[in-house]
Structures are given as C-alpha cells and as structure tokens.
Amino acid sequence: MSRQPQDISGEPLGLLGAITHLSLRKRAIVFLATGLVALLGIFAATQINQELFPDMDFPAITIVTRFPGASPDAVAEEISEPIEEAISNVEGLERLQSTSADGISLVVAEFDYGTDMEKREEEIASSVSNLTFTAGVEQPVVNRIDFADFPILAFTMYGERSQAEIDALAEDVVVPALERIDGVFSVTITGASERLLVVSLDPERMARLGVTADDVEKTLEENNLSTPSGFAIEDGKILPVRTEHQLSSTEDVANLALVSAAPTQQPATNSPAVEVVPLRIADVADVGLEPSPLAAIARTNGRPSLAIGVFKAQEANTVEVANEATDTLDRLEREGLLEDVETAVLFDQSDMIEESIDALLREGLFGAIFAVL
C-alpha cells in the first residue's frame, strides 16, 4: 500500500504539492519532457506563416467602374444607380453606399460578419455582368476587401537612364524576375509612361474620297473587338472575361479597309470591268503613336521614377516572399542588369514582422529567466 506524500507537519500534500514532490523525485524525466516541449515549440514556430495582418474575411464587396471623361452626375445616373438597383436584393445585404466622381464609380456592399462572402461575390458579379452600360463605360471590377490587396513589398527605380529606358528595364527584366518567385501573385508598376495610338483624320482627303468620320470609327470598332463575355473565378477573385481581337501595330490600323467607303465615281455600265481597290484608313488619316498623360506620377529624390509593388499569394509566407524579392533585386544588380539604376525600398512588411517576432522572443526570454530566478 503506497503512502501519500506529507509535508513536514505530517499533513497530506495537495495536488500542487504532490506534483512538486513528484517532479523533484523524477528530475531526469522532467528535464527530458521540458526539452521535448521546447523543441516542439521551436519547430512549430518555424512552420507558422509570418504575416503582418491577420487573415480576416471582411464582409464588404466593392464594385469599381470607370467612365473616362464623364461628370459625377453622369456617372451616378449611368453607372452607380443601375448597379445599386441590380444588387439591392442580394441575400444578407446590410448596407449599400456609392460614390460617384469624375470618371469613376465606387459602390460598396456591406454584409454581416459570418456571411459567405465568396458566394455573395459571385452573386454580385453575376448581377453586374448582366447590366448594359452606355458606350465608353469600362467593365466593372468586383472585389472583396482583403489585406492581400496591399503589397508586401514596394520599391522605386530611378537613375541616370532616360525614363523610357527605366520603363523598359522594369517591364522586361525586373517584373518577370519577380513574378518567377514562388509565392508571388502579381507585380504592379506605377508611373510608367505609355503611348496612345492616334488616328489624325485629314478633312481634305476625306472630302475628296467621300469618307466620313463615322466610317473610320465603324472600321476601328469592327476590327478591334473587345466585348464582355461574363466572368471567371480565380484564387477567390472575380475576373471579367472579354472576347478580344486586338490590333497590334500602327501598320495594322493604317492598312484596315474602310467598311463603308466607296469610290466617288462609278464606272459606266458599258465600260470594261475595273478592279476597285478598297480605301484604307491610311488614305484619309495619319496613324501614329504619341505619349499619353500619366495616370499616376512617381518621384524619388526629386527625379522621375517607377513605383513597383509585389503582391503575394494568399497561402504564401510574407517574410519568405519579401526576402526572396529583395534577394532577386540584389542578384540583378550584381549581374549588371540594373546599371545606372538605383532601387529604394518604400515599404517592406517583412521588416515589421521580424521586428515584432524579435521583440516577442526577447520578452519571452526575459520572462523565462525571471521565472527561474
């Protein structure tokens, strides 16, 4: 018959006293168990994704629609109000608000926490895709509010090269290298210059050949097809799908046969057959490329620059992806691919995450030391 442990006064020990008594008698087992738990904790800590923001599903969906050149009143009447009416009966909708500004509409649909936001997003995207907008309105973009919409790393590129050379370097070298990193979802560029294809009509040639501006416009519309065809779901995001047949060069545009153009004179019925060569856009207009106004401007140390943002996939580790991205930039510099170009980091989530983890480990270590003492 085993005897219950007692204190110095002969009274039986309580639960905590019994545990302490057992620990003192079995020191080797206690040390082994403590070491095993510590090792398991260290291993688990290395496997956890390190994130700056928690993985939260906000109960809100945004619908952004652009209408270049339109006034706020026109945006509200042609876009915001039809969208509000189309999605007002979505199940679980708590509040619907819209903002109409010059050339853009923002509609926000709010739901209760716990709502199946993926299903609501599909319903809203389906309702919006069935709407028919006036000419000039771009396809609405439907998105859930997500911390993944913020870049984990943002940096600028600037230097002694021309802006066009820096643009080409970013698009042809830097962005492809970053996109090849495992865990990178997308890479965006802000401040890059773009060129617009401009068709300059010649009134004299048009009058002589009997061509109108409507003829040219109809020709361009029918040969540069871009029409909405519904939507697709990829990585939890609703993406609009369009059927496109795009013209790829100024020569393609200049050589287009005018749809409704006709010779100014018809041959007599008794005249021999004459091959009629269709008129081209180049016969009535000059086609070329011109710099477009920048939608966004980036400057670093007073000089024009590019701002590049790196976005990670939802399941990727922020610290690992950000560190790999900075290592990639260092490698490009060592290989001489960024000659006469400097990069400056604007924002790096991994730095803040590592600082937070270091502070947590430091405080935990101090706590353990004081507990032992």
Rank of each mutant, 00 (worst) to 15 (best):
A28M: 14
T46G: 15
S100L: 01
S200W: 03
R66W: 08
D182K: 12
H245L: 09
E217S: 14
K119G: 01
R303F: 09
T62R: 06
V128G: 07
S260L: 14
L36Q: 02
D214I: 13
V175K: 00
V142M: 08
Q349M: 08
T134K: 13
R95Q: 15
A322K: 02
S200I: 04
L153M: 06
G41E: 12
E110W: 02
S88F: 10
Q246P: 02
L169R: 05
A45I: 11
I233M: 10
E222S: 15
A28R: 15
T34D: 09
V287K: 06
V341G: 07
I29C: 11
A254N: 13
T99Q: 02
A298Q: 07
L36M: 14
D146N: 09
P12F: 03
P263C: 07
D112I: 04
P240M: 08
G309W: 04
S292I: 04
S88E: 13
L22N: 13
M206V: 04
I145K: 00
L15Y: 10
A262H: 11
D7E: 11
N301E: 11
I145M: 08
A45Q: 15
N301W: 07
R334Q: 04
V253Y: 05
S249Y: 07
R95C: 02
F366R: 08
V319L: 11
V259G: 03
A273I: 06
F311N: 12
S71K: 10
V310C: 15
A164V: 04
K218V: 14
F133D: 02
D252C: 03
G236D: 03
E85V: 10
K218C: 00
Q139V: 14
E251R: 15
V284W: 01
D73Y: 10
L52V: 12
V321K: 01
L52Y: 07
L13P: 05
I166T: 06
A298L: 05
V253K: 01
V216K: 08
S9W: 07
S127E: 08
E123Q: 14
Q314A: 14
E77I: 11
E122H: 13
D358K: 12
F147I: 05
F311W: 14
V345W: 06
D167A: 00
S200L: 02
G230N: 03
V107N: 05
I353V: 14
L153H: 03
V277N: 02
R95V: 06
A135E: 12
L294W: 06
E335P: 03
P263Y: 04
L16T: 03
T65D: 08
L197G: 03
R161V: 04
L365H: 08
A254E: 10
E217N: 13
A207L: 10
V259C: 10
T343F: 12
R208W: 07
V199Q: 02
F150D: 05
E165N: 09
F311L: 11
F366P: 07
E275L: 07
R334H: 05
D7G: 08
L294D: 02
A316S: 14
I357D: 13
